[in-house]
Nucleic acid binder design. Sequence first.
DNA 1: CGAGGTTTTAGACTGTGGGACGAAAACTAT
DNA 2: ATAGTTTTCGTCCCACAGTCTAAAACCTCG
Lengths: 194, 194
Amino acid sequence: MLDVVLQVRDEGLAALAAGGALPGGELEAGETLEASARRHVDARALGHLEQLETRSLGQQLVTAYLGLVASHVETGGDWHPIARLPRLAAGHREIVLAAQARLRAKLSYTNVGFALAPETFTISELRDIYAAALGHDVSATNLQRVLVRRGVLAPTGDHRGPGRAGGRPAALFRFSSREIQITDQFGFLRPPTL
Amino acid sequence: MLDVVLQVRDEGLAALAAGGALPGGELEAGETLEASARRHVDARALGHLEQLETRSLGQQLVTAYLGLVASHVETGGDWHPIARLPRLAAGHREIVLAAQARLRAKLSYTNVGFALAPETFTISELRDIYAAALGHDVSATNLQRVLVRRGVLAPTGDHRGPGRAGGRPAALFRFSSREIQITDQFGFLRPPTL
DNA sequence: CGAGGTTTTAGACTGTGGGACGAAAACTAT
DNA sequence: ATAGTTTTCGTCCCACAGTCTAAAACCTCG
């Protein structure tokens, strides 16, 4: 049982790892896989948890889980930007990269973003989170239009005063659901409209 | 270790199951997961194999694999259309449905189709395979246009004479690659073009 | 050999989703 | 007031996929 816990931090998307290994431990008797995954991390901080893959590392079978922590949550522990991971135990690096790939893919066809963002946020803040997780620039305009049209994002009605640099006050948004949902119709091969 | 083996047959998409249980068995010492998955089925017939998920069934952990068999391959065994599965052991039905969902999703953004189709085929034949796997009608025109533009399908140059009903001879196609590849750019949040 | 039926193929039209761009709005600081 | 910043709104445009229709190529039957 291993956990890959990801959070968007100042230095970009980062993973939790202490002593050159991902958090984890043995599965206890009668324990479900997901319960075990939660037991080995600070479960309160997790905004989302899902199974990644199972592989044989050395002599034992290891099931890896992907956990996401919202960017505003204060967390202790050793965070390492994914771009420059330290030396990790055998196989752990591949698992982290698989977790990153899974997150990047799901950001575009699900509402997983809710697990990376605070309860309410401005579009610019959300854009920064997406940009850090995806590793490339994201247009705030398009991000808002797409997510609102899909019903993933809803305005709260409130606004937040500008920072010290000035600028127009930004509208606050929230994710309409904090359960994971598929929001994209997968491009092609849709059922005929009838 | 359990295998969900799917094939498009006359009655539609069907799964292999004998005696109310999916094929499978214990993992042997020193054996990789994938090797074990192959050992429990007719590995020669498989056009594709990938890990599905791991869950605890009763007291033991079970890792399920999804295997695909091309529609023209002659196979023995107990095939059951997914639409009306018989009674299965606890949890097995959910695994079959997860396998079906995985296949349906991947058909639209990868080239997995190669694992369901023969070496060469007409667009109509491919459309029937996709329709059976997806569970709804598929437009042959769109299927051809999309897959050819993506480079997934390539014409062989040959044609196949019409059946007994007459009709224009159909051009033969093949999948340009028989390794699984992601062929869709996932709708939105693409990197900026620069 | 021609007429009608069948299947495949090709083309045009349309609608939608999303990328790019620019202008307007709302604020701060000088 | 003026300049600078950030957010927001609107427009243009392109690529992709769904729909429809017509043409092409073959069969069978009279």
